[in-house]
Write a protein that binds this DNA or RNA. Sequence first.
DNA 1: TCTCAATCTTGACACTGTAAAGATTATAGA
DNA 2: TCTATAATCTTTACAGTGTCAAGATTGAGA
Lengths: 200, 200
Amino acid sequence: MPKKKNYHHGDLKNALIKAGVEILAKDGVSGLSLRKVALKAGVSHTAPYSHFADKQALIAAISTEGFRQLYKRVSAVIDEYQTKPSTQLVEVAWAYVQFAMDDPDRFKVMFSGVLEKEKEYPEFVAESQRSFQLVKMIVEANQTSGKLRGGSSDLAALSVWGIIHGFVLLLLEGQIPHAILEQKSLRELVEFQLEQIMVK
Amino acid sequence: MPKKKNYHHGDLKNALIKAGVEILAKDGVSGLSLRKVALKAGVSHTAPYSHFADKQALIAAISTEGFRQLYKRVSAVIDEYQTKPSTQLVEVAWAYVQFAMDDPDRFKVMFSGVLEKEKEYPEFVAESQRSFQLVKMIVEANQTSGKLRGGSSDLAALSVWGIIHGFVLLLLEGQIPHAILEQKSLRELVEFQLEQIMVK
DNA sequence: TCTCAATCTTGACACTGTAAAGATTATAGA
DNA sequence: TCTATAATCTTTACAGTGTCAAGATTGAGA
């Protein structure tokens, strides 16, 4: 009896996450099924249960991985624009928008309630808070330089995140009036959003 | 053979929408199935197909109905506070937040991509735009009174909506840091958000 | 080498959306 | 008023889904 070489996959957990991301990009949230993910990874339809408690757990892992990449990209932007804090803020916001548009369905999964939060996923919470800390840092720098109003940096960071996040979601849902999108580029719209809360 | 009095329901379409809203409130998005809706309405599991092309169409109808109610509530608030435009703005924002929290799952369905937008649902689009026009009106009043910066009222309305909408979604997703929620009431947080873009 | 825990497969179940065909009823036109 | 036709609803069927239970395979430590 020949040894089945691939009975143990070796790195199935990550392979499943990767397969999930790909299916998400191709078929959207409604097309993401555990069975398809397993098939794509080349294992039986219940193999994922050795690594994830249920479908929600896989989605949590995909979301967590998404936050990890978002953190990376935002960090890179911060490093790249170390001139003025206000420039950093705009560029980070722009990176956020691009991240969302690169893979809208993953973004929605990360933020828009596909993940049911009753069960706690500590890694997910930790990773998302890590990203928020990044925003907070930039906001504080802008408060110091006078480009953002003072007060609680937590609250100010929430405002900044909220205004961009709200814009992105309205964008992804096609709720932004046609007339607006014809007049201004996305980049200009993002800048306009930020100008609303920037001092002067 | 006795006439089955209830073979034709009479107003099944609306009954299905109502049943859907109730299931949504109780079991969440993931618990919303066509079969459950049909059962709750007292008809066979395929009866809905006489009124809706598919599940998405029912969800679109639920969303549309949601926008109709949102419009009503916001209108009422506008009528109630006809003093200062800035007061109207705060109260409308507060009504928006309350609407979301009254029925978080319906709110998510309305906005967060459960509805797949490839297929067009003209009623849905019309109703959501009608609500946006309401926001635009208030924003214009605030621009006139100097409480909001000038420029395109479409863009300004987008900012206002975005900042509140973003806040609500972060709230519903539990992404707002614990420390913040302990310090300030929801109402105060909403006011803080708006102060960020109000002049002075 | 033996044992055991981790990993993966097979098989089964209830539940889902939806298509097809037929039953029932309302209604419009004769 | 009668009848044909369209609207509405039911029955039946099927493929796809998440998940559980039992068993097969394998790697790693005793």
